[in-house]
Design a binder for these strands. Sequence first.
DNA 1: TGACTGGTAGTACCGGTTAT
DNA 2: ATAACCGGTACTACCAGTCA
Length: 278
Amino acid sequence: MKKRKPPKKDESNRYHQIVRHIFFRHYAKGMTEFTFARSEIETAAASLGIPLPKNIGDSLYTYRFRMALPEEISRTAPPGKNWIIKLAGKGKYKFELVAGGHILPNEMLADIKIPDATPGVIDMYALNDEQALLGKLHYNRLIDIFLGFAAYRLQSHLRTTVPGMGQVETDEIYVGIDSRGVHYIVPVQAKGGTDKLSIVQVEQDLALCRNKFPSLFCIPVAAQFMRDDVIALFSFVDGEDGVGVSSERHYRLVAPESMTREEWEIYRKRLFAGADKS
DNA sequence: TGACTGGTAGTACCGGTTAT
DNA sequence: ATAACCGGTACTACCAGTCA
């Protein structure tokens, strides 16, 4: 890779300047949302007199899923609210004030022990955190255990265009069926490493499922590696105040031989609870 | 004229690299 | 470890060319 200028660890990097410029070109006190076009990234760079980043879309992706918005922007949000950037159509984006924003695991929640059934070769050869996480969800049937009904993996990395939203992607899609025969569609977002789970992505999953699977009941799920083999799982509902977390559990994967008989009994009951749930 | 096909541009996402 | 940026990939939309 060719040499480039060292990054500046302050508020003056290009991504910061561009997003700040776009925000304050539209923002007026009291606003709760406004849309802007992807092309404004180019005009922002031009009017700031800075080189356009090679990967234009990344300048927004970074703030949607990786980093906090610049301080000047977040300062304009009232207490308890945050600005997020949503898709608003192909090549269109929307700044929106929401309660929440990033989804962070509740550190006070107790871990639930689960015997780790991940094949050793999967652990050995998973190429990245997300792949490892999706593998663990699958091999340990964590979606079934978490939601309480049988769920089957349908497709990985489904990417499609949702009308009025733009191009969206979900990491994995499960279809489920409960004891009454009700069918569910479960889009799963998995985050490992330093990426953060975001309500934006859950809203995209909901929109994707309503578009592609309108007849199925959609339960979005998000998964995040917390620490040594602890996986946080969240489910969401689309309520009157927008999308919110409906359930959170932390599962600790442990070597089966390290579990006591009592712990096995609890696990067995939990695994089959879904079959009796109505 | 309409259906089909292939090429291309635009877009969104995510992993990798490098410097701090 | 983190921040900043870039490269690569996959999908969609659009358009032009071909053929029945």
